[in-house]
Simulated assay, not measured.
Amino acid sequence: MARAVPAAELANHEGALARDGFAIIKNLLQDDEIGAVRTELDRLHAACGFGGNEFTGLRTKRVFNLFAKTRVLDPLLINPAVLRLVRSALGPEAQLSIASTMEIHGEETAQALHQDDAYHPSAPHPPLVINTIWALTDFTHQNGATRLVPRSHLRQDPVDLREPTIPAEMPRGSVLVWNGAVWHGGGANRTDAPRFGLSLNYCCGWIRQQENQYLSLDPTLVSSLPEDVQKLLGYDICQFVGWVDGRHPMRAILPEVRARIHAGQGR
C-alpha cells in the first residue's frame, strides 16, 4: 500500500502548493508498487518510439490514453494524499485531464519553459490545472528532473525562456504536484540511464479535459470501474455541467438507458 501521509505533512504541502506553486510528497510508493507499475508501463513502452520534435523530445518516449490500456494506475489516480492536494486547489469536482508517461533518455535536451493552462486569457488567476508526476526512477538534476520557476503562477508577465529554474529532485516513489500556471519544463538528461515519470494531470470539473476520455475509453470498460475512478475520468457532473438528457453520465452510460435516449423514450 502507498504510504499514509500524516495530516500535518499534507497541510504543509497544501501551503507550499498555494505559496510556491508546487510541492513534493516524498516516498509515497513502496518498492513493490513501483515495480508493478514499471513492469506494466515498460510493456507499453516496448513498441514506443521517440518524439518527433524538440518540445515532445527527440530522445523522449511517451505513451498516452493510459486508462484505456491498463488498470495498474487506478490506485495512483485516487491516491488520498494526492487528491487532497489536487482538490484543495481545484475543488471537489476535479477530474483527470490527461495521463501519459515521459521516459527521458540520455542526450535529451531541456524542454522549453511553458505553462499548462496558457489558454486562459489573464494571469494570475485561480488554479485551473494541477499537474502531478510520479517518479518511477530517481529524479536528479543530471538525469532530467522537471525544472520549475517557483511562484511563477502568481506572475502576470509572459513566460521568459531564460528565467532561472530549480530541478524537482526526488527519490523514486515520490510525487511532484504543481500548479499548471507555474513555468516549467522537462530537464536535460546527461546520464546513460532513462528518467521515467508518470504524469497524471487534473483540471477543474467544468473545463474540457486535455485528453478526450469519453472517446478514449469504451463505455463498457468505464461501467466496470470503481466509482471514484469513473468520476475522476470525467463521468460526473459539476453543478449544471455534464448531464446526459437530464441523467447522471454514469446512469446514461448503461446500454439500455442510452438506447431509450436515442429512441426518444422517457426515463
Rank of each mutant, 00 (worst) to 15 (best):
N53W: 09
N53F: 06
E54A: 15
E54K: 13
F55W: 14
F55C: 01
F55R: 15
T56L: 09
G57I: 05
L58V: 12
L58I: 12
R59D: 09
T60Y: 00
K61L: 05
R62N: 09
R62H: 14
R62G: 04
R62W: 04
V63F: 10
V63I: 12
N65Y: 11
N65C: 10
A68Y: 04
T70P: 00
T70V: 09
V72L: 06
V72R: 06
L73R: 03
P75D: 09
L76K: 06
N79H: 15
P80K: 11
A81W: 13
A81T: 07
A81N: 11
R84N: 13
R84D: 13
R84V: 04
V86R: 01
V86D: 03
V86Q: 05
R87F: 05
R87Y: 10
S88W: 01
L90Y: 02
P92M: 10
A94S: 14
Q95T: 15
I98C: 10
A99H: 03
A99Q: 06
S100V: 09
S100E: 14
T101C: 03
E103L: 13
E103D: 14
E103R: 04
E103C: 07
I104C: 11
E108T: 13
T109M: 12
A110H: 01
Q111I: 01
Q111N: 09
A112N: 14
A112P: 01
H114V: 09
H114K: 05
Q115V: 11
Q115S: 14
D116V: 00
D116M: 08
D117L: 04
Y119E: 13
L128D: 10
I130T: 11
N131Y: 03
I133H: 09
W134F: 13
W134E: 03
W134R: 00
L136G: 00
T137I: 02
T137S: 13
D138I: 04
D138S: 02
F139H: 12
F139C: 12
F139I: 02
H141S: 14
H141E: 15
Q142M: 09
G144C: 01
T146M: 13
R147K: 14
L148W: 00
V149H: 06
V149P: 12
R151V: 11
R151K: 15
R151C: 12
R151I: 03
R151W: 01
S152A: 07
H153R: 04
L154C: 05
L154A: 14
L154E: 07
L154P: 00
L154S: 07
R155P: 00
R155N: 11
Q156M: 09
Q156E: 15
Q156Y: 03
D157Y: 03
P158H: 12
P158M: 10
V159R: 07
D160K: 08
L161F: 10
P164S: 03
T165A: 02
T165Y: 01
P167A: 09
A168K: 00
A168L: 03
M170H: 07
P171E: 14
P171T: 12
G173D: 11
G173P: 07
V175E: 06
L176F: 08
V177R: 02
W178E: 06
N179K: 05
G180E: 06
G180R: 04
W183K: 07
W183V: 04
W183G: 05
H184E: 08
G185E: 04
G187S: 12
G187A: 08
A188H: 04
